[in-house]
Structures are given as C-alpha cells and as structure tokens.
Amino acid sequence: MLIYVKYMVSLRCKMVVKQELQKMGLNYVNVDLGTIEILENITDFQKGQLRTNLKRFGLELLDDKRKIMIEKIKAVIIEMVHYSDELPKVNYSNYISEKLGYDYTYLANTFCEVKGITIQQFIILNKIERVKELLLYDELSLKEISYKLHYSSVSHLSHQFKKITGLTPSYYKKLKVKRFGNLEDL
C-alpha cells in the first residue's frame, strides 16, 4: 500500500515517519521523500491514527490526487537539487517527466494551478537554497557552486541569487548567519 505525505522533504522527516510506523507496529517496505510503502493494507482507524501522529510533526497524509501529484513533483525536484551529487545533464522538464511518467505540460499546468508558481520558479528557489547551504559550508568557491548547480556562469548565479534574496552571494557569505529557509515553505 502506498501512502503519500505532504511536507516530507528531508532526511529528518523520513526518520520521524519511520519511528511513527514502528511505534504503530506497521511494517514498511520503503519510506522516501513524500511516500510510504507499507507491506499490508491498513485500516481506516490505523490511517487516522497515523494521520494524527504525523500531524504533530507538521506532516500531512494526502488523499487528493492533484495534491499527491504536486508532492511527487516537489520530491523529485528536492531530491534532484538537494540530495544528488550532480544535477541531471538533460533538461529539467525531461528529467521530471521521465521520473514521474507523465507529460511535462500536464505536470507544469497542474503544479502552477495548485502552487501558484511554475515548476521552473520552484526549481530556482530550491537551487538558491542549495547555494546558500553551499556558501555557508565554505568548501566550494562560487565558480565551483555555479558549475555544480549547472548555472551558465557565476554572473548568472549571482544575478539570480540577488533577485531572490536581495543580497549578493559574496555579501551573504560574509554575513555568516545561518539563514536557511525551510524546504517545506518553498
């Protein structure tokens, strides 16, 4: 049985879900960003209990097909930008479409209708969050970050960073203040 979870965007969220499933005695096959695969079918009571338990941690079970699709799109993007060592070499639209098995136009229209922003805007927001994270780690130069995240140039990255944050990457780095946003809020 596959269950979809909203706001499940980090490794910490996956840990919380696994702990709650174990507390309830539910055997899971896989817990991934936005999804839980459980071995057996669960009762409506168990599902309600799981819904209540996860809500305490800001997680929400999804039943609406459009909302499920949005969470799948978000999970693919978050995985791609934040947890992959390298971004895909193909267009993001092709990558997302292939991963989810749907026509990109359908995915893009659904995402925009429900979230009020385009998939491309969501990708940019996530890339900027990743840039912030990499700047704070101070392990890579701006040039290396722009290459890692497939920006055409440092100037393009800097322009997009300033447009989103209001700060230049170098000024942000000098602040040394952890200004991480929550991925759940994007």
Rank of each mutant, 00 (worst) to 15 (best):
A75R: 01
G34T: 05
K178L: 04
T43R: 09
V90Y: 00
K148H: 04
G116W: 00
L136D: 05
T43Q: 07
E133K: 07
I96D: 12
K162V: 02
H159K: 15
I123K: 07
K143F: 13
I119N: 09
N27T: 11
V16H: 00
K163T: 06
D85A: 11
K72P: 01
Y172W: 08
C13D: 15
T118V: 01
D32R: 11
K174A: 15
D44N: 10
C112A: 12
G101Q: 08
T52H: 04
P169R: 02
Q22I: 07
L183W: 12
L50P: 02
I123A: 06
V76G: 07
E86T: 14
Y102P: 07
V177M: 08
L100N: 07
R12A: 11
V114A: 01
L183R: 09
D44R: 14
K67H: 10
K163V: 02
R130F: 01
S97L: 05
N126K: 06
K132Y: 03
N41V: 10
Y28F: 15
L50E: 03
R179L: 15
V29R: 13
L87T: 02
Y172R: 05
E40Q: 13
Q19K: 13
M69F: 08
K47Q: 08
G58C: 05
T35G: 05
H150I: 01
F161W: 04
I3E: 00
E20R: 05
I123M: 09
Y83C: 08
N126A: 04
L149V: 06
D63V: 07
N182M: 09
Q120C: 03
N91S: 13
L61I: 10
R51P: 00
S141F: 09
N91T: 12
Q22H: 02
T105P: 03
K174Y: 14
D63N: 11
S10Y: 10
I3M: 06
D44Y: 10
L136F: 09
I78P: 00
I68W: 13
Y95Q: 11
R179K: 12
M15N: 09
I117D: 07
L157F: 07
L26K: 10
V16Q: 01
L186I: 15
K173E: 15
Y28Q: 12
N94D: 15
E133L: 04
M80C: 06
M69A: 10
Y92M: 10
Q19D: 14
